[in-house]
């Protein structure tokens, strides 16, 4: 029994090593004083980080990505709240089918969503590609994730609190605002952070739909063609990884607090 558990533990630790290998290498090369990304290391430098601040096309890409990610986090979470509230609170015909359709982007390859939107936008709507079209696409793929998080927040709501509010004369809307919203607020914050992170990192849809307004991943991909630019990208990656870890830790904190607040028990991760 003991040895069996240990075998699994060793395997799990090796597996974590495999999962974290690329992320661990990132800061090593970001601070290495060489344009060639390989061992042995040459020396310590912060020049790649300094180069980031003066790169105007990079700063523009960051700006574009932030505009998109903030919009997506608000839109996707709003759509997520409606869907999660509808599925956890009401029974209605066609629920399974409609939810299946809404959750479909989870398994639909991103390239299919990208080409479908590209074709429809340029050939049917006749719209110009811009950050707005990227926001459309990213909201679509981020919504299922927000629903997954918000479902657990709404599921752990005690129905009797809501009924008590009705009995005390509150309307549906005031009950939602005064009782339900504060209880699911941690879930909402968590969902917004996840949607933000998904959008910030998404490349394929952004590459197809951003037109001339490159987002950060589109910019990064374009830089891979120039070997001398790679150390700067490693520095950028180091900052992005740190940012993602902070955002996810905060999101996880709120997700757990949300479930605890509504009287539930935390069971698992984001998905």
């Amino acid at each position: 029994m003991k040895s069996k558990g240990n075998g699994f533990r060793i395997y799990a630790i090796l597996y974590l090593g495999f999962l974290y290998a690329p992320i661990v290498l990132l800061p090593i090369f970001a601070f290495n004083n060489s344009t060639v990304i390989s061992f042995p290391l040459v020396g310590f430098t912060t020049q790649w980080f300094q180069a980031l601040v003066t790169d105007t096309s990079l700063l523009l890409a960051v700006r574009h990505s932030l505009i998109v990610a903030v919009s997506v986090s608000i839109l996707a979470t709003t759509f997520g709240v409606f869907a999660a509230r509808a599925t956890t609170r009401y029974k209605f015909p066609g629920k399974g089918g409609l939810m299946g359709m809404i959750m479909l982007p989870l398994v639909l390859p991103d390239i299919i969503i990208a080409v479908a939107l590209l074709g429809a936008i340029t050939n049917i709507l006749g719209m110009k590609l811009s950050l707005i079209t990227v926001i459309f696409g990213h909201t679509l793929i981020a919504t299922p994730f927000t629903i997954a998080i918000l479902n657990s927040a709404f599921q752990s709501l005690d129905r009797s609190l809501e009924e008590a509010a009705y009995d005390l004369g509150e309307t549906k809307i005031s009950t939602f605002r005064l009782i339900i919203l504060p209880l699911v607020m941690p879930g909402i914050i968590s969902a917004m952070l996840i949607a933000f992170t998904i959008s910030l990192d998404e490349y394929i849809i952004a590459a197809f739909l951003s037109g001339t307004e490159a987002t950060l991943p589109v910019y990064i991909f374009s830089q891979f063609r120039f070997p001398q630019r790679v150390p700067v990208i490693m520095a950028l990656g180091t900052i992005l990884v740190c940012l993602s870890i902070v955002l996810l830790t905060v999101a996880e904190y709120f997700r757990r607090r949300g479930i605890a607040k509504a009287g539930g028990k935390s069971s698992g991760g984001f998905l």
Binding site: P22, P217, I220, L248
Partner: peptide
């Protein structure tokens, strides 16, 4: 690791 920059 899944949530950290895919391209990188």
């Amino acid at each position: 690791p899944f949530w950290t920059s895919y391209l990188i």
